[in-house]
């Protein structure tokens, strides 16, 4: 029983980090209709900036600068994306993000080399014990931070003018423009937010029991892709739900791998995708994705 509780908590903690990443995917998709394959590299950039800057600036300062820097990088990507002609099909903007990813990742990997960089986070290797379940302090805070950030985001989405414009814009860009919504600014704000969230996710990923930033840190994005898609691309609630589902599935597959050994070893890597494929077969638009209405 204790193991189950512990495993479920691990799943939640994992899901909370996925949520920060998947929310970024979701925002970008809403704004630009592209899946951002450079998101993992943006995350790595955020982590790298914190790692490099935490000594002169302190952790909080470094995180602030990193979030701003990553947001700026995302904004640059958005600007490039705006220039792309979509004439050659809807896949083109997404392919562009692959190009951005190659450039960003090559440079970051070159700088990081084989190092494991610490981020100087304040949580150290401390653990908390709650009701027989032991959790690393950093994991507890990552859950808390994710909940706060996501809550704040949802509130803003629901109740502020920005949220209203965002919803209007993503449901009908032309009509929203006619009503005075400035599409360019809105798109940019989504990208900036996605970038900043990626930097925050990087810090929690690096914190204990993770072991800092290395060149593969950005690969978390590969597990967050299915989270965003199975929930329904472009649906904020879907991204959150998907993150929890994927986090749980992965933690269960790892925690109970001895019982599942008949399926071959290394199952945890496959599980997010298996769950996603099963859901997509039943619901091609994802769990909470809106069925695309088509206008002629």
């Amino acid at each position: 029983m204790n193991t189950l509780a512990q495993t479920l908590f691990n799943g939640m903690a994992l899901g909370s980090v996925y949520a920060l990443v998947a929310l970024g995917f979701c925002l970008v998709f809403k704004a630009s209709g592209a899946v951002n394959f450079a998101h993992g590299s943006l995350l790595l950039l955020g982590g790298y900036l914190v790692a490099v800057l935490h000594e002169p600036l302190g952790f909080a300062g470094a995180l602030a600068v990193a979030a701003a820097g990553t947001a700026a990088a995302a904004a640059v990507e958005a600007l490039v994306l705006r220039r792309v002609a979509r004439a050659n099909g809807p896949a083109v903007p997404t392919i562009l993000t692959i190009g951005v990813d190659i450039l960003l990742l090559t440079e970051l990997a070159r700088r990081i080399g084989g190092d494991v960089l610490g981020t100087g986070d304040p949580w150290g290797a401390e653990v908390l014990t709650i009701g027989g379940v032991t959790v690393a302090q950093a994991r507890f805070y990552s859950l808390l931070a994710a909940a706060l950030l996501v809550g704040a985001f949802l509130a803003a989405f629901r109740w502020t003018g920005w949220g209203l414009s965002m919803r209007a814009y993503s449901s009908d860009a032309e009509a929203a423009a006619l009503m005075g919504v400035r599409g360019d600014r809105l798109r940019m704000s989504a990208w900036l937010l996605a970038g900043a969230l990626a930097a925050v996710a990087a810090v929690f990923l690096a914190a204990f029991p993770g072991t800092g930033i290395d060149r593969t840190t950005g690969q978390i994005a590969l597990a967050a892709f299915p989270a965003a898609v199975l929930g329904g691309l472009g649906s904020v609630g879907g991204a959150l739900l998907g993150s929890v589902v994927v986090g749980m599935a992965e933690a269960l597959a790892t925690g109970y791998q001895q019982q599942l050994s008949g399926l071959g070893s290394g199952l945890a890597e496959v599980v997010p995708y298996a769950v996603m494929v099963l859901i997509l077969i039943v619901r091609p638009q994802g769990l909470l994705g809106a069925k695309e209405s088509t206008r002629v």
Binding site: A91, T94, L233, G266, M276, V277, L280, P284
Partner: peptide
């Protein structure tokens, strides 16, 4: 049944299944 981006991410699954 899947379109555009959905298919793109769904096909990622093939890489992982294949490797497994």
């Amino acid at each position: 049944r899947l379109r555009g981006m959905y298919l793109g991410v769904a096909t990622l699954a093939l890489i992982f299944f294949g490797h497994h």
